[in-house]
Structure formats: structure tokens, C-alpha cells
Design a protein around this nucleic acid. Structure first.
Lengths: 202, 202
DNA sequence: GATTTGATGGTACGGTTGTACCACAAAAAC
DNA sequence: GTTTTTGTGGTACAACCGTACCATCAAATC
């Protein structure tokens, strides 16, 4: 054998090229050739590591979902050294607002995938659906904890409020993606709303 | 000349075919041919009424935005025979949640267009951006009116709360589109949240 | 050292897409 | 009654797409 290459590394390299390409010209315009050029390899190589385009798209989506998980966990860890519910919730929700360019790229492609998965049968039933469900129960748990700690408004229904929070963060994130609002506006509004859920805080 | 056809009617017929086709197989998969077949006409005719595909897509988007306006106005009129701020706000926000199949079709294609417009230069700068801005100030006005009528929580900042409401409704609508939540769940949560903004109501 | 095998390049093929081109019927204009 | 003009059909073409196929080179195996 020749160079004896690390397959996973090569695959990651190609997938990143796809994500970059998708972010700049749209997921609909990525082709085997454009990905190959962006990655600086031959079309044949893309085929070699991902047989078919569908598998390439699927692999990219999986990697994206994985990164999403990492991002959130990173935020949570960076936010509170302690296990402060409000800090954790805040961190998780702010993550949905694209601030820097890399974050914008990430969320844009993620959203494109999500919308595509509605009509594309090959993409439906992928881990996209699992993440929000976990998020849901996670937020419910954190809200309940915050209420018991006397930190969050006790009148709230944690179950419904969790859905509201998720919707607010998704809605704001989307509006930033669509260039309807700046990231600063969105985070400001998010904090405003969080202040209503978690009253009187220093 | 022959039949002396109503151009606008023909154009509307073709655009509706496009929207139907986009709803079922995705906006990315609509072609001149698929639209022609769906509309029951020849490809040449589609060319005749919309010279190029780009113009066809643009025309469809314009029509969609128009319909969106009609939908909201219809909801507003149907909701309160009176000019009750809460009823109006509720009507506007519930509109973003796709309930019946036709509404789902509508919002799906609308969202596909919105996401597409981020990367497609030909679609950017279209009336998509105008609508949410108007909506914004409209909601601010309604909220302020509701506060003065003693109907809405006076502690709220109308400016920020309007953005929150819009984000909640958009976020919930999106989650329904992505099959993460049922329309019933979404509307229930929306009403829950509205109850927090408009306290103690019969 | 011969041979197998993993990694890569180049290219050609069938299908699809947007669009341009040619033809023609029929109603209006003169 | 001839001549425009409008609406419509069919088709052909160049570009592009995903993918299959063939060739090659180098390292590992024996």
C-alpha cells in the first residue's frame, strides 16, 4: 500500500470542504466537483471515501449534528464552573444565536439540512429529531431545579416554559440567519426574556 | 390573435403548480419540466409566461409574500370584530403555526425560500425582509395599546416583548414544520405564553 | 523480487436541466 | 383577404451532474 492514510481524517477534511462550500453558496449548489475543488482533491477521491453523493451528504449531516452537541456541551462547561441552572440554560440558548462567522456558517448549514430533511426522504429520520427532544427534557429539569432553588419564577410551568425558551432561541437564531436582526439585538432580547423567567438577579 | 388569454390568470395557474410541486418534493427539485407537468401545460408555455426560471422563482416568491399578507389580514379580521389588541396579536401569531395541510404547504415553501434567499444573490433583497419589520412595529403598537388598556402586563418592554413574541411564534412554527412538534402542542404553548403576557383574562 | 493491495488520477457516459430555435394555428387588424 | 400578432407545441443543444471504468504508483507481504 502507499501512504497508508488515516481514513477518518481524510473524510473529515472532505466534509469540512463541503460545509464551507454549502455555507457560501448554499447546500443545494454543492456538487461532487465543487466539494473536490474546495477540498483540493480529485473527484475520484471524494468518490473513494464516500461512494455516493447521498452518503457524503449523510456523513456531513451526522458530523454537523455531532459538532452541535460538542458546541452546546462546550458552552455549558465554559458558562458555569458551578452547576447553576440559569447559567446553563442561558449558555444553551445563546448558542442558537450565530455570533461569529464560524457560528453563522454552522447554523446556516444546519438549518438548510433541517429544511431539506422535510422533503428529502433520504434525510428524514436522522438524528436531527433526537436532539431537540433531549434538549426539551434537559431544559425542563434545569427549570425545575431553578424553581426549587428559588431562582426561577415559581408560577411557571416548566414543561411549557421549556418549549417557549427553545422556540425563542430558535426563532431569534433564525432571524439572525435571515439577516433580519443583528446577533447583538437577538442576544439582548434573549437576555431580556431570561430576566423575566429568572426575576431579581444581581 | 387566438384565444386571447388572461395573462395574470395563466401566470397564477403556473405559479400555483410550482408551489404545489415545491411543497411535495422540495423547492430544490422544481424544474421547468416538473412545473409544466404539474400545471398540465408544455414547457414552452412556462417559458412563454416567465421567460427564465429565475423570473419564475421570483414571481412565485412575490405571490407567496402577497398571500402571506392576505392570510394575516384575514386572520386579524376573522379574530376580533372589535379592535381588541390581544385578539389581534393572538391571531397574527397563531398564523405562523401550520395547522391544516394547506397552511403547512404554504409555510414550508415560504421557509424554503427564506433559507434559500440567504445564499442565493438573485433572491436576496426581496420583500421577505420588509414583512417582519412591519410586523415588528405593528406588534409594538398593539402591545402598547394593550398596556394602556390595562390588558397587558405593564412591566413589559413593548419593543423587546414584540421581538420575543415574534420569535416564539416563528420558532414554534418551524418546529412544527420540522415534525418535532404537533400543531396542537405548538398552539397550546403559544397560548400559554400569551397568558403570561396578558394576565388574568376570562 | 514478485505480487498483492490501498490510494489516487483521469476520463467517458448516460441522464437531466435551462433555454434557444423553428413551426403553426387562429384571431385580430387592415 | 391578406398580413400581423398572440398563444402554443415540439425539439435540439450546450452545460452540468453523478457515477462507473480504467490506469498507475507505491508500499507492504510473501
Amino acid at each position: 500500500m502507499p501512504k497508508l492514510v488515516d481514513h477518518e481524517e481524510r473524510r473529515a477534511h472532505i466534509i469540512d470542504a463541503l460545509l464551507r462550500s454549502a455555507a457560501s453558496s448554499g447546500l443545494h449548489s454543492v456538487t461532487m466537483r465543487s466539494v473536490a475543488i474546495e477540498a483540493g482533491v480529485s473527484v475520484r477521491l471524494v468518490q473513494y471515501y464516500f461512494d455516493t453523493k447521498e452518503q457524503l451528504l449523510l456523513a456531513a449531516m451526522t458530523r454537523l449534528a455531532l459538532r452541535m452537541g460538542e458546541r452546546i456541551q462546550h458552552r455549558v462547561r465554559a458558562a458555569g464552573s458551578t452547576t447553576d441552572p440559569r447559567g446553563i440554560i442561558e449558555a444553551v440558548l445563546v448558542e442558537a444565536v450565530p455570533t461569529d462567522e464560524e457560528s453563522r456558517t454552522f447554523h446556516l448549514v444546519y438549518t438548510e439540512y433541517a429544511v431539506l430533511s422535510v422533503t428529502d426522504p433520504a434525510l428524514a429520520g436522522q438524528p436531527f429529531l433526537a436532539a431537540p427532544d433531549e434538549m426539551d427534557s434537559f431544559l425542563v429539569a434545569q427549570l425545575t431545579a431553578a424553581q426549587q432553588a428559588g431562582d426561577a419564577d415559581p408560577h411557571l410551568d416548566p414543561r411549557q416554559e421549556a418549549v417557549v425558551l427553545l422556540a425563542v432561541s430558535a426563532g431569534l437564531g433564525l432571524s439572525v440567519l435571515l439577516n433580519q436582526r443583528t446577533a447583538d439585538e437577538a442576544t439582548a432580547v434573549l437576555h431580556y426574556h431570561l430576566a423575566r423567567v429568572f426575576p431579581d438577579r444581581t
